[in-house]
Nucleic acid binder design. Structure first.
Lengths: 214, 214
DNA sequence: CCTTTTCTTGAGTGGTTGCTCAACAAATAC
DNA sequence: GTATTTGTTGAGCAACCACTCAAGAAAAGG
């Protein structure tokens, strides 16, 4: 997801050859991280460009030169969030856990610990940052909705694989289970935004796991 | 919740004596219903006063004369939503069902049918209409958050009563169960907004009920 | 009839929104 | 050195935001 139109870090990891013109006076990654936190806390439209420039410590012109526009900055923020531990724990659990049951148990328990963690805004950015958008920003809402629905497909694929391997009984419904876990995770994100504690969410996670087919 | 500052329907149910001045040229209830639909679909801040006046078929002056301001109109819309079948089904189920298990089973199954119903915006207004708000509208966000958390307390009270009556085993945790059902309901609302069908949500509801203590 | 009360209308308020641009600054290329 | 390239700056753009108000209109009271 790197290589935005106005960006210059196309070959990440390569030695950063000094660019030709005047060098950027601010840390692009740090500014993006600040923007991510703001979008995460307030959401896309409730965060103004003025809020962003203030938090990023730059002037509007620098923001538009470095990131394109507000929408592109948001998409980069979502990508940065997805690379962070908080945004990647679901994918990591699915990859690392040998069993589907182990993966979903870990996902729910980690969500219970991570979502209410006070070191960052509560809940999941992908779930909550663009739920209320005006007509002209519907694209942003659809962007996150597609990410959420893609997650659902990933869940279903993992569960279907578990069924093929015999971990899940033949009469289980992978699609229904995937939708159920997606709903629980989204509900836990919301509850954490409403003030739910890690302990409360851990109890919710344990109860949710009771739905796993016997 | 009637009797707003600028309203004249203080004694509801009484014969509507013709008021003294020029009569209102529009149907206040119909206008409020139109506003409710708009807030429900887009959320508080993503709905502009211009959107509202257009949908309500009135000019800004009439809106402010009849409802106060945008914030007061929103609170009236939330109250109207709460009086509607869609907004009241949770309370109705808790009141009508003799057992707690029956009540929560009915709540989840009705949510699965109601939330994706195409005759109105998807999901629950209380859950989704003010998740992304600017700093100056934080009060509106807190208003809905308090409603959601009050619902949680109601759930817990019903479950505790069930435990006292022996319906729930002594080792069950009413608070944890209440939080779990709240999370599932909020998750189902979100899923319906993301396009989940009634069938998918019904399956989610059935899986969720597996958490009920044996 | 005239007065009083209330509602509607249309123009318009100051403030904020996302965004732009000319001028200037700081680097490399030659 | 000069030319070229890119970033920063501060002023400022049109569009929209929630909201207001004077003038006129439609009712009841007397």
């Amino acid at each position: 997801m790197g290589g935005m139109t106005t960006d210059t870090d196309a070959d990440a990891g390569a030695v950063r050859r000094p660019a030709r013109g005047r060098p950027r006076a601010f840390d692009r990654d740090a500014a993006l991280a600040a923007a991510t936190l703001l979008f995460w806390r307030r959401g896309y439209e409730a965060t103004s460009v003025g809020d962003l420039t203030e938090a990023m410590g730059i002037r509007p012109g620098s923001l538009y030169a470095a990131f394109g526009d507000k929408k592109a900055l948001f998409k980069e923020a979502v990508a940065a969030y997805g690379r962070s531990p908080v945004g990647a724990f679901v994918a990591v659990a699915l990859e690392e856990e040998p069993t589907a049951r182990g993966a979903f148990a870990r996902i729910l328990r980690e969500a219970a610990a991570i979502y209410p963690d006070p070191s960052h805004p509560a809940g999941c950015l992908t779930i909550c940052a663009a739920t209320n958008v005006t007509v002209q920003d519907e694209e942003v809402g659809a962007f996150l909705r597609d990410l959420r629905n893609a997650n659902l497909v990933t869940f279903e694929a993992r569960l279907r694989a578990a069924q093929d391997e015999g971990e899940l009984p033949a009469d289980a419904d992978p699609k229904a289970l995937a939708a159920y876990f997606a709903a629980i995770i989204q509900g836990m994100s919301q509850r954490s935004r409403d003030g739910a504690t890690a302990a409360e969410l851990a109890a919710t996670a344990d109860l949710a796991l009771a739905a796993w087919p016997a």
